[in-house]
C-alpha cells in the first residue's frame, strides 16, 4: 500500500428517501496505486459512477473511509472538497460537460479561475493545455462548433490544466463513434504512460481492455472482481 493514491475501506453510499433505501456502493475495499490505469466496469446501476463521484469529491460516503492522496474525504468540509476537486483530481464525463456559451479556451480557463490564477497566466496555461490536445486552432470555438472527439479533448484539457494526480473518466467514450473513442482511449493511455493515474468507468469492458492495467468489476454496488492485466 506504499504507493496507494486511492484507498477505500468498507466504503458505503446509500440513498434514502421516505419510502426506500438504495445501496449504490456497498462495503468497497480496494486501493489504487499511483500510475495505474484502472477500468471500473459493470452494468448500468452497479455503482460505478457513484464510486467515481466519491473519489472525485462530488459526493460523500455514507460510511466507511475513502482516502485520496492520503487525505480522508469523508471528513472534509465543502471548501476542502472543492480544493480536492481543483487540485487532486480531474474529471471528464460522457456528455463532456462543457459550458455551451463559452469557447474552448474559456471552458479550460474556468478550472483555473477558481484557483485564483491571474488572467494572463490563466490564458497561457489554458492555451497550452488545448495545444497539447491538438486543439490549437479550435480555441475560439464554442462546444457546439466542435466534434464529439474535440469536445472530449477540450474536457480532458480542462481536467488536466491544474495538473492533478488522478484523472477520473466517467464513460468518456460513451457518446463517441468507435474510431474517435479509440483515439480518446489512446490519448488517455498516453497520459497514463506519462505517470497520470487514470480511473475510467465504462460499461464496455472489452473496449478498455487494451489500455487498462487493472479492472474493477462492480455488481449491485459490490466489488465482485479485481483483476490486473498480468493476472488476466
Amino acid at each position: 500500500m506504499e504507493n496507494s493514491i486511492i484507498e477505500c475501506d468498507h466504503l458505503n453510499r446509500f440513498y434514502e428517501n421516505r419510502y426506500a433505501r438504495v445501496t449504490a456502493v456497498h462495503e468497497l475495499c480496494f486501493s489504487v496505486n499511483q500510475g495505474e490505469f484502472v477500468a471500473v466496469v459493470g452494468r448500468s446501476g452497479s455503482g460505478k459512477s457513484t464510486l467515481l463521484n466519491l473519489i472525485g469529491g462530488l459526493d460523500s460516503p455514507s460510511s466507511g473511509s475513502i482516502r485520496v492522496l492520503g487525505k480522508e474525504l469523508g471528513k472534509m468540509k465543502s471548501q476542502e472538497l472543492a480544493r480536492h476537486r481543483r487540485h487532486a483530481v480531474g474529471m471528464i464525463f460522457q456528455s463532456f460537460n462543457l459550458i455551451p456559451s463559452r469557447t474552448a479556451l474559456e471552458n479550460v480557463e474556468l478550472a483555473l479561475l477558481f484557483g485564483g490564477t491571474p488572467k494572463g497566466e490563466r490564458r497561457k496555461l489554458a492555451a497550452s493545455a488545448l495545444d497539447s490536445m491538438g486543439l490549437k486552432d479550435r480555441m475560439r470555438h464554442r462546444p457546439g462548433e466542435l466534434s464529439g472527439g474535440e469536445q472530449q479533448r477540450v474536457a480532458i484539457a480542462r481536467a488536466l490544466v491544474n495538473k492533478p494526480a488522478i484523472l477520473l473518466a466517467d464513460e468518456p467514450t460513451g457518446n463517441l463513434d468507435s474510431v474517435t473513442a479509440e483515439k480518446i482511449l489512446d490519448l488517455l493511455a498516453g497520459l497514463n504512460r506519462q505517470g497520470l493515474t487514470v480511473l475510467m468507468v465504462t460499461h464496455d469492458a472489452d473496449s478498455v481492455k487494451k489500455v487498462s492495467g487493472r479492472t474493477l468489476r462492480l455488481l449491485d454496488g459490490r466489488l465482485v472482481e479485481d483483476t490486473r492485466r498480468s493476472q488476466a
Binding site: 471548501q79 472543492a82 480544493r83 487540485h87 477558481f114 484557483g115 491544474n162
Partner: peptide, 14 residues
C-alpha cells in the same frame, strides 16, 4: 453549469 463549476473546483462560497 453550476454542477460543472463545482466539478472543476468551484466552492460553495465562490
Amino acid at each position: 453549469e453550476i454542477g460543472i463549476m463545482k466539478s472543476v473546483g468551484g466552492s460553495e462560497a465562490e
